[in-house]
Design a protein around this nucleic acid. Structure first.
Lengths: 147, 147
DNA sequence: ACCATATTGTTCGATATCGAACATATGGAG
DNA sequence: CTCCATATGTTCGATATCGAACAATATGGT
C-alpha cells in the first residue's frame, strides 16, 4: 500500500485526535464536554462578546451545534447572553466569572491528562511540526471556502 | 496565552481533523460515511477475516459503533459476516468484491478531495512530521492502556 | 469437571452533531 | 421607500457515537 504522503499524515492525525479527545473527555468534570471546553477556551483566548456564528465558524461546528453548546454553558452559569445592540438578530456571548474559573480548571485537567505523553514529544519537535500543520490547516481552510 | 507546546499541537491537530473529515464526508458517495470508509480501508490494508472487536480497537471506536457500521456495510453488500470457527462468540468480517471496489472508488475520491491542499505540504515535510506524530500516537495509545 | 471471570456482539437510552427549514432582521438594488 | 437576497439563531428529524447492561461463549484456577 503506497498511499500519498498527505493521506497517511491525515490518517495519523485522525487517530491522534480521537485518542486525545477520548482521553480529555474522560478527564473533564461530569457534564463538561470537550465541545464546551473548546468554546470556553476560545472565548478566553480570543475574547468574549462574540456572536454564535462567529464562534461556530472558529471552532468548526455548525450553528445548531453551537446553539446547543451555548445553551448548556448558559444553564451551567458559565456564560451569559446579550442581544447584539448593532444587530437585532445576533446574540453576544460573555463569560461569567464562573466560566473563567471553569476554563482554568479545565485547562489544568487537560494539561494533567496529556502530561504522561508530554515526555515523548519534545518542545523542539513541536516547534518543527507545528508550522507545517498550521500551513496544512490554512490550506484546508482555504479549500473549504472555495467549495 | 502560553499554553504548553503539546497542548497547542493537539489543538491544531483537532482542527485539521475536523476540516479534513468534513471535507471527505461531503465528497464520499451518498450514505457512505467516513467511519464506513475507515473500516473498508482497514480491511483492505490489514486484511479481512477479522473480528468486530479487533477492527473496533484498530480504528478507535467502541464496540456498539462497530456493530452499527458493520451492519450498514453488510446492508450495502460491501462486507459479509461469518461465524468464527474458533470462537462461538465471534463473527468474522470479509470484504466482498463490491466492498473492494467501493474502497478503491473512495480512495480515489479522498485523494481528489485532498489534492487542492497537497501542494501546500511537501512530501519531505510529511517525512519530517510523520515520525513525530507516530511517536505521539504510540504514547497516547500506551497512556490509554495504563488507565 | 466446575465455577468465577472475562470476552464478544448486541440492545438500549442518552446525547451531540448535522442538514434542512423557519422566523426574524439586515441591507442593497431598483 | 420597497422588495428581495442574505445572515442569524433556532427548531426539527435523522444518525452516529457512547456507556451500561445483557446473553452467549471462553478461559483459567482449583
Amino acid at each position: 500500500m503506497n498511499d500519498p504522503p498527505l493521506f497517511v499524515l491525515l490518517n495519523e492525525i485522525s487517530i491522534i485526535e480521537h485518542l486525545a479527545r477520548n482521553r480529555l473527555e474522560r478527564a473533564l468534570p461530569e457534564g463538561l464536554r470537550v465541545s464546551h471546553f473548546v468554546v470556553l477556551n476560545h472565548l478566553v483566548r480570543m475574547g468574549d462578546g462574540r456572536s454564535l456564528v462567529r464562534i461556530a465558524r472558529a471552532v468548526q461546528v455548525e450553528r445548531p451545534a453551537m446553539t446547543n453548546t451555548i445553551q448548556k454553558l448558559e444553564a451551567r452559569g458559565l456564560v451569559t447572553l446579550e442581544a447584539d445592540p448593532r444587530d437585532g438578530r445576533g446574540k453576544l456571548v460573555f463569560l461569567t466569572p464562573a466560566g473563567r474559573a471553569a476554563r482554568e480548571e479545565a485547562v489544568a485537567i487537560a494539561e494533567a491528562a496529556i502530561a504522561p505523553v508530554a515526555g515523548d514529544v519534545s518542545a523542539a519537535e513541536v516547534g518543527v511540526v507545528l508550522p507545517v500543520l498550521r500551513r496544512l490547516r490554512a490550506a484546508l481552510d482555504r479549500a473549504r471556502d472555495d467549495d
